[in-house]
């Protein structure tokens, strides 16, 4: 690999330099360049040998010879460096061209788990309500008939029980699968000291045949505010804030009479359909979507909770979480929510 074993000055200096420069110019990579560098500038390279031969020269020739050798050394080093820069630039250029890159290849799959869409919407609402001073409460799914009905001003044989389609847990009818989250209203009144604001997310049950829009198990969020002189105007204000939180914009709302024995007056709250201007399948072409039942807490309910209706008043509402999730994601079959199918779950 070392150059031919030549003694100085077998070749004149210019020829040596020219040969070196040519060798450098044809180098196509760093490795070849390194070989040339070793040949000329290495420990046993051409320049080293030139320098080693100097003592054999006549003393008057020595300074010139030394100078020449150093010039050759510098010139070769410069040429090598220049060539290296050129090679680096070419390499970068080649990389930049992106040869062989297919921009249409799919991304690597990022693996992850998922939170149930009901969990997601529940969290959002809990956070929203907590920011407004509500506390989040929980209540049992297997509920006493007393809290589910009696305490809510729905005595036995009240026609309103018809629409509740209740699952009974015993022949005596003492226990039911709660038909709504409302039983927590009186449970909360028994525990807390007014004024207070609460929300209660949870599972509810209705004894009905399932289809794409009905399931015997669904999720609701109850809200209850108890204070002094709580009015319908406050309810309207709170509901507008709630809808702003859900839909991220102001929606026109309307209250219309609705009958629920545990509120008086009772309302159905409709919001302008957020999905259309002139009627669509979601709002059944009415431009209104029925969002939640609500009302001022009935004095009998306040009394059941140990509160004096002359002193305390309040409002309550029940938000259908399952329905909200379906609206938000355009889910056309409620039964997907509780079916536990990974193909559904992993989308959220």
């Amino acid at each position: 690999m070392a150059g031919p074993d030549r003694e100085f000055p077998l070749e004149n200096d210019e020829a040596t330099l020219e040969r070196a420069q040519q060798q450098i110019l044809v180098c196509q990579d760093s490795q070849a360049l390194k070989a040339v560098e070793r040949e000329y500038l290495g420990k046993k390279g051409v320049v080293a040998r030139l320098l080693a031969s100097i003592p054999q020269l006549a003393p008057e020739q020595r300074p010139q010879a030394g100078k020449t050798a150093n010039q050759i050394k510098q010139a070769v080093a410069q040429a090598i460096e220049a060539r290296q820069r050129a090679l680096d630039a070419a390499t970068l250029e080649a990389e930049r061209s992106g040869a062989g890159f297919d921009a249409s290849l799919p991304p690597a799959r990022a693996l992850r788990g998922s939170l149930h869409p009901l969990t997601q919407v529940t969290r959002e609402l809990e956070d929203l309500f907590q920011s407004m001073g509500y506390q989040v409460l929980d209540g049992p799914e297997v509920e006493l008939d007393y809290y589910n009905f009696e305490a809510l001003n729905i005595p036995a044989d009240h026609p309103a029980r018809d629409s509740q389609d209740t699952f009974y847990c015993d022949e005596q009818g003492h226990f039911v699968m709660r038909t709504h989250t409302s039983p927590v209203q009186v449970r909360a009144m028994e525990r807390l000291t007014p004024p207070y604001r609460i929300v209660v997310p949870g599972k509810c049950f209705r004894q009905e045949t399932t289809d794409a829009s009905h399931d015997h198990t669904f999720h609701q969020m109850e809200g209850l505010v108890v204070g002094v002189d709580i009015s319908v105007a406050h309810l309207i204000g709170a509901m507008k804030t709630l809808l702003r939180g859900i839909f991220k914009r102001d929606l026109e709302i309307r209250l219309r009479p609705g009958f629920f024995p545990f509120v008086e007056p009772g309302f159905e709250l409709d919001a302008r359909c957020p999905f259309c201007q002139a009627g669509c399948s979601v709002c059944k072409r009415t431009t209104w979507i029925e969002l939640l039942p609500c009302g001022l807490v009935h004095p009998n309910v306040l009394r059941a909770g140990g509160l004096d209706p002359e002193q305390w008043s309040g409002f309550a509402f029940g938000l259908g979480l399952s329905r909200l999730v379906m609206l938000r994601h355009g889910i056309d079959d409620i039964r997907h929510l509780l079916a536990g199918d990974v193909r559904f779950l992993e989308q959220f």
Binding site: V136, Y196, G237, A238
Partner: peptide, 16 residues
């Protein structure tokens, strides 16, 4: 009910 005003609650509620 549509002719009723919208009000925010003014009572002080301790942080939950």
């Amino acid at each position: 009910y549509g002719n009723l005003p919208e009000r925010s609650m003014s009572s002080v509620i301790a942080p939950p």
